[in-house]
């Protein structure tokens, strides 16, 4: 599964994307984020406050309970500031 990071999530984690093998038992976005937080202090710091994290799966906004498929493209980013 491809996981993309943008804005300060990307700078805190230190890279723009990961290729993640979904661990057994992880089925939704919340589970994926919990798994990512265990990958290092940068991940943990970037993802510890879910109020500041937005999620898109295959370019559509989803909630933290959204079920994931191995072929999904997941993006994690802060609230948007365009316009």
């Amino acid at each position: 599964m491809k996981v993309l990071y943008f804005a300060w999530l990307r700078t805190r984690i230190g890279k723009p994307e990961d290729a993640i093998e979904l661990p057994k038992g992880v089925g939704d976005v919340r589970g994926l984020i919990d798994h990512l937080r265990g990958l290092g202090p940068g991940y943990d710091q970037a993802l510890k406050d879910l109020k500041t994290v937005r999620v898109a799966v295959n370019h559509e906004y989803v909630g933290f309970d959204h079920r994931l498929k191995p072929t999904d493209e997941v993006a994690l980013f802060p609230p948007v500031t365009g316009g």
């Binding site: 802060p78 365009g82 316009g83």
Partner: peptide
């Protein structure tokens, strides 16, 4: 259109200030 794109289009602003580069927070 301008109100909705500000809250839904995936853009992020990084500003160069005298304090250094700072990500703009959503309002």
């Amino acid at each position: 259109l301008i109100d909705w794109l500000k809250t839904r289009a995936p853009f992020w602003k990084l500003e160069e200030t005298p304090r250094g580069a700072e990500w703009v927070e959503a309002k």
